[in-house]
Write a protein that binds this DNA or RNA. Structure first.
Lengths: 187, 187
DNA sequence: AGGAGCTAACCAACCAGTCAGTTAGAAGGT
DNA sequence: ACCTTCTAACTGACTGGTTGGTTAGCTCCT
């Protein structure tokens, strides 16, 4: 167990992702992360400088993962939304983290990888619209915002609404997201 | 200044709403709230028992406001989504608070007023669907979830996407929300 | 020997919550 | 009018526990 720096870093990152997902940045406890990773608090500061640095590392990795696993297909945005939904569903930690990032992360520099990827997506949507694959009721940015937002439908419900939706099975949830995007983009 | 209990309570609630909206529950500082309300920390504990009690009071009031100001009209859900959007847009504090509540509030008992209001909304949608005013592609819960979720479209964008959407004017944002809901509910 | 990886113990700052006491005004007696 | 009593509203100073961050030193491998 001792002596493997890379493995320790991994355990710390994983534990941090869970902790941040559960409690947010302000609510997360460095001691808990160290304990959950079966490591030590000082190691966190050695590898990640400070709490913010740790959060940053978690977000950066997560963004990379998502960008890689859910490539956009502007010709089939409903399916793209479905893939984003899959990604959220496969990793509930990630869905919450994204939300925390939105609320607490405004001070942080926007993750450059995400900025670049967003630019690419926008270009893809613009091109598809010019080719007539997407109706022009909405501008490209609007389309992108709608698609991304809809893909997080089931991960952004209030506790009260959650009581009513908890019985909806996986496949149906995905269907709803895909169908909703399809409906938006019909002529 | 001294001796007006009701006024003091108000100032504390208003200051708390702002503080919680900015920093969340874990990040909010009781001292800052007391100072901003030009009151005293002990008063907070006198009126609201503890930090959680204060957050609860803030949420309860907010929910009441929203339920009252944005009554559902199941026969015209696009316009209902528009009203919800208006409410968010008119009070940015409230938009953020709702988000914090989703993430941090799971431990809290669901606000009963909201539970009741959600039940009513669901009944209204169900009835409208039976009357053929709403297509049956989605179940009533799904429709409600979609409409509510779409109304928060512009208040749930990532910082990265925010850079691209910040120039979209108010009226257009509202239009997008309304048009999106309309598209969802077309036959 | 020496360095990379690791740990227990420690510290200063911070923060939710408490408490003993003060102020301001109302009520009531004379 | 004046004094006394009572009370709701308020306050500044304090506390006990927590938290992010540090440090001195240990272990193990080459």
């Amino acid at each position: 167990m001792a002596g493997d720096a890379e493995a320790t870093r991994r355990r710390l990152l994983d534990a941090a992702a869970k902790e941040f997902a559960e409690y947010g940045i302000a609510g997360a406890r460095v001691d808990r992360i160290a304990a959950a990773a079966q490591s030590n608090k000082a190691q966190i500061y050695h590898y990640f400088t400070n709490k913010d640095g740790l959060f940053d590392a978690v977000m950066r990795e997560l963004a990379g993962h998502t960008v890689r696993e859910a490539p956009i297909d502007a010709a089939d945005l409903p399916e793209y939304a479905g893939r984003l939904y899959d990604r959220f569903a496969a990793d509930p930690v990630m869905a919450r983290l994204a939300n925390w990032y939105r609320l607490e992360g405004s001070g942080y520099a926007a993750v450059d990888l995400v900025v670049a990827s967003t630019r690419d997506k926008l270009a893809a949507v613009t091109k598809a619209q010019e080719e007539g694959l997407i109706p022009d009721r909405f501008t490209p940015v609007e389309v992108l915002a709608l698609v991304v937002h809809l893909s997080s439908l089931w991960f952004a419900v209030t506790p009260e609404m959650g009581l009513l939706t908890e019985d909806i099975p996986h496949e149906r949830r995905r269907e709803v997201v895909v169908a909703a995007v399809r409906a938006l983009l019909r002529d």
